[in-house]
Amino acid sequence: MNRRHFIKQTALASSAVMASTVAGTALLSAQGIPEQSLLTILHTNDVHSRLDPFPMDGSRNQGLGGVAARSSLIQSIREENNPTLLLDAGDIFQGTPYFNLYKGEPEMKAMSKMGYDAVTMGNHDFDAGIENFANQLQHVSFPVVISNYDFASTPMEYNYKPYTIIQKGKQRIGILGVGIELEGLVPKNLYGNTVYKDPIVAANETAEILRQKKCDLIICLSHLGDKYSDNKVSDEILAKESRNIDLIIGGHTHRFFDQPRKYTNKDGGDILVNQMGWGGIQMGRLDYNFSSIKRKISPKAHTVVIMRKPNE
């Protein structure tokens, strides 16, 4: 991975030299205008097998959602030509008869078709058993990232990654995942030998690896839930206890955030948490603006400004 990164960087550097834009960059820096670049992150959570829009039955959500409309929306955003990431924070399964009948096959195929880049697992993804989830992964083209479930000697053992690194445009993005405690929430026979580990410890350890691998942005896909009235571990608690993570894409609590929540992490840096309800009723978008700075003066803690994107 490091070597590939080196080659990619070298190639970028060479092409930069060839195109003689080095002078231009230097000029920009000299004028104090930092070089900017953009990354678009699209995200969903708790879609719960909602492949078709909600039925037209007079209910609040009638006509909303559905993979066919979501796919068009994703395509139109991709046509803006920013590097785009598409992520999901779990509970892909359970909630419509599609799941009862097909155990997640059309959900997985639809997400692959839409071009999801990475997902994490929610508690309901165990609902037809861990072996079923592992089997359904034959239909996907994206990794399942989770760093706090020990899947040794389970059907998931060779079917997940603790993290993934994706190069999108200029950015090298590290993506990890954390899952909720399964005991008491999911029947034991469904999750089998899966061992839940402390998500804060696992997330920080994994984020440190991603930092060492020189990721520009580190994203944690989380199915912990945004926050609770007691001290149960949540995105809020993780955010405050975290290091190196820039963004938590959350789920489980089905909350529609009006805007991302900003917390101060263990190093005094900014970390954002966002969540997009459930059922694919909404899709979240975060446009990250990056400044290019010298690696050796790069601060350990990032500070970001949040604003609402104007609706074109």
Binding site: G66, N274, Q282, Y288, N289, V305
Partner: peptide, 20 residues
């Protein structure tokens, strides 16, 4: 070498509406 540092985030929630 340089690194990319996140500076600014703009957010939006798209309704996945039947008009799409």
């Amino acid at each position: 070498g340089t690194t990319q540092v996140p500076k600014q985030v703009s957010y939006l929630g798209y309704p996945v509406s039947p008009k799409i």
